[in-house]
Design a protein around this nucleic acid. Structure first.
Lengths: 225, 225
DNA sequence: CCAAAAGTGTTCCGTCTACACCCATGG
DNA sequence: CCATGGGTGTAGACGGAACACTTTTGG
């Protein structure tokens, strides 16, 4: 702490955004093909450089908003990635963020406009730079948190069936869950409200729709499985 | 992804290191007084700027090594802090790291050389910039992980008593733990080996010393409470 | 002999797990 | 009427929480 700032080196700082969705049975990620050299046309997360007038968090929000047209999404920092040679184009330190979105709210024209594709985790190709590691770190983080924070609802429409909710947990945790035990647990969480709406798209007899009570959660932000 | 890197702004990137120790009953952090303007002489974490030839992780290791003379410490990234005005001296994006050390291995002359002091979490003064937030985020992270990763042993000597180990858990979780239940749990973790050494410093009759079997843990890195 | 810390088991209760059948409906 | 997905209960195992007294020994 004895020198002045100006004696030190500056670096490019970027954000990379891992946008997670849920296709009904698998977790998927929005990736694109890189539009610039080096690595042009390689699969890549979508990212952007941090601008002088915005925080790093704001940069991530801006990139995600450009990409999805959506704001107020659930977003979380995954971590900073700073290996010297991580980017073949130069020394860039990148901060990864993940976002969870409901794919039904997402305007598919934006996806096409940016040439993005939804890829499930199992089908993930090799991505540019250390982006595979970022996705891996992000999914591990979500896996750790999904039982103590209400993440799953961000991947579903406002009104969802218990079967859909269970499929989210199965996809994130990558294991089968017993239907009766799952529903028993859900019913004793009073943040998950039964509604009187019925979904008829998936079954002949219809399934009860539920919703997550965000207002109540804001007041008392505790959530357990 | 349509511009060249060189059109973008570069930033100073620093690391800030949160060095945790354990004084026998409380968790404490090594802090100093800032040696440079702005904020000269304010309490602060110890940090440093990232150099061109090192990764961000390496920068953190370098700073911690300078400060403690120790290497191969348990270290973990806490997160990137990138608010525009976080540092009054200019736009600096900082990546926080925490390290856990055994204070008995630490050369107190180094502490004096750098003018550092150990401060317990309860007595933490207001620190420079967003350093209080970093410490807070770090302790929350440790609290979440202490039951699923063998963190606690990094705060203790190689040989430790079960009472000492319990005190670490109590300090981190900030709550009393039942002695009999704690010891019952410990005894069924076969990574924690009883030795035939006895510690006589704390009690007339002496207490059995234990050690953590790192070799075994490397082979099968699972740990539960 | 006494102060101080080490060490030790049992019971209870709540939670998690395993498991299989009937229902309602639209086509 | 039948295929499809929705919905429901119970019993046993397991793990966590509460709880108090005896032992050792150096001074």
């Amino acid at each position: 702490m004895t020198e002045f700032y100006s004696q030190h080196t500056k670096y490019y700082v970027s954000v990379d955004c891992i946008i997670f969705g849920f296709d009904g049975s698998k977790i998927e990620v929005l990736i694109g093909r890189r539009q610039m050299d080096p690595g042009r046309s390689e699969f890549s997360l979508y990212g952007g450089f941090v601008r002088p007038d915005e925080s790093v968090d704001d940069a991530a929000r801006r990139v995600v908003n450009d990409l999805t047209g959506m704001s107020n999404l659930y977003m979380r920092q995954v971590g900073a990635y700073g290996d010297v040679d991580r980017d073949p184009g130069g020394r860039v330190i990148s901060v990864a963020y993940c976002a969870l979105i409901n794919v039904r709210d997402y305007d598919d024209r934006l996806r096409q406009k940016y040439g993005l594709v939804w890829i499930t985790l199992d089908d993930m190709p090799r991505l540019y730079s250390d982006h595979n590691r970022m996705i891996n770190d992000a999914i591990m983080q979500i896996r750790r948190r999904i039982n103590t924070q209400p993440l799953s609802f961000n991947l579903l429409p406002e009104y969802f069936t218990l079967t859909q909710l269970q499929h989210v947990y199965e996809a994130v945790l990558n294991k089968k869950i017993d239907k009766r035990n799952f529903r028993k647990r859900i019913k004793q969480i009073d943040l998950i409200k039964q509604t009187n709406r019925i979904d008829h798209t998936m079954s002949r007899s219809g399934a009860r729709l539920y919703r997550f009570d965000r207002e109540k959660y804001e007041k008392d932000p505790t959530f357990k499985l």
